[in-house]
């Protein structure tokens, strides 16, 4: 039982990342009708916002050590972060330690700007082109973006730890009545899950309870009619592209302490996120979230040893098997609507 609960927690955590990326993907598809294969790259850029802010906060001046030498026998360099010199050692150390949460504030404007530039600069020219063209151009863009990141940051993963307060793990099992040490879970993964729930809730609330959101929803349902009412729906959809980019970026920022960011991490999530969108139903926001968590949990269960003993290799194909079954039984996905992606 404890193992199953642990895998459910793992699944919810994986599902959080899938859901956040898929939410942005389906938001863009639902508003602009664009199949954005560069969305995984936005997740990756978000993670590198955390890396960048961490490096900026760690910018240091150099003094020479009178005693120690470096590997060439020259005096060793002592690096002192400017923030420690400016704000004192304690505040400076706190800023360095909390660089990932602080990167949320850094990433929001950066990701909205990236989204705007991407949409205005390239993607808007492909609105009336076939989906195949959109897929090709956005996939090409994703490759360009990841190569740009690799050029500046290298190919190796870059460690970006969580604040000291959230490192390590705690006994989750004791909280729900299990024996001590039965369910140990990392703090940061729970933070990630809670953060994802918050962002997903905020996006739904924004769309449901604001006038802007109401217009966007109306535009998603009937773009022409909203346009005939004198509303510049294109402008609002561009803003939604920026918001979708920010959601993917935030997912990336908070994911950085879970696995060290590398230039390829967007591609690792891209295909899975598309499966999530298709399983959830093209253009369905609740469907994307539901499918994200569902596939995350199923993927975790499929990694359990006794299941792998019965069906070897199931952990590698489970998501695609489930996608096939759901699309066979519900061709529009779990919560897809008639008329979306259909001639």
């Amino acid at each position: 039982m404890d193992v199953i609960l642990l895998q459910i927690l793992n699944g919810l955590d994986k599902g959080s990342a899938y859901a956040l990326i898929a939410l942005g993907l389906t938001l863009i598809f639902g508003t602009l009708g664009v199949v954005n294969f560069a969305h995984g790259a936005l997740f990756m850029i978000g993670a590198f916002c955390a890396v960048t802010l961490s490096r900026l906060i760690n910018l240091s001046y150099v003094t020479l050590d009178p005693v120690k030498t470096d590997f060439l026998g020259n005096p060793a360099k002592i690096k002192t972060p400017y923030v420690e010199a400016w704000f004192g050692p304690e505040t400076g150390a706190w800023l360095i330690d909390w660089s990932v949460p602080l990167a949320i504030l850094f990433a929001i404007p950066v990701m909205i700007a990236v989204g705007f530039i991407m949409e205005r600069g390239l993607i808007k020219h492909f609105y009336k082109r076939p989906h195949a063209d959109q897929i090709l151009v956005t996939f090409g863009l994703a490759i360009v973006l990841q190569e740009v990141i690799k050029y500046f940051y290298g190919a190796n993963p870059i460690p970006t730890p969580a604040p000291e307060l959230f490192r390590g793990s705690f006994d989750f099992g004791v909280l729900i009545g299990f024996d001590p040490n039965a369910i140990i879970y990392p703090y940061w993964r729970l933070v990630y899950f809670a953060f994802s729930a918050l962002v997903i809730g905020a996006v739904f609330a924004f769309l449901r309870f604001t006038t802007f959101g109401m217009v966007v929803r109306a535009g998603m349902a009937d773009r022409e009619t909203v346009g005939l009412l004198g509303i510049d729906i294109d402008k609002r959809f561009t803003i939604m592209f920026g918001i979708a980019a920010a959601v993917a970026g935030l997912a990336g920022v908070m994911y950085a302490p879970i696995n060290s960011p590398n230039y390829h991490m967007g591609m690792d999530f891209l295909v899975l996120s598309f499966v999530v969108v298709v399983v959830g139903g093209m253009g369905s926001l609740p469907g994307a979230v539901l499918a994200g968590f569902l596939l995350g949990v199923l993927e975790s269960f499929a990694s359990m040893n006794w299941i792998k003993d019965i069906i070897p290799g199931i952990d590698q194909v489970i998501i695609y098997l489930v996608a096939i079954i759901i699309l066979l039984t519900r061709p529009r996905g779990l919560m897809g609507k008639k008329g979306v992606m259909e001639d």
Partner: peptide, 11 residues
């Protein structure tokens, strides 16, 4: 990329 579901059974 994420090994959490492989690590969990180790515990």
């Amino acid at each position: 990329t994420d090994f959490s579901s492989y690590i969990a059974p180790v515990l």
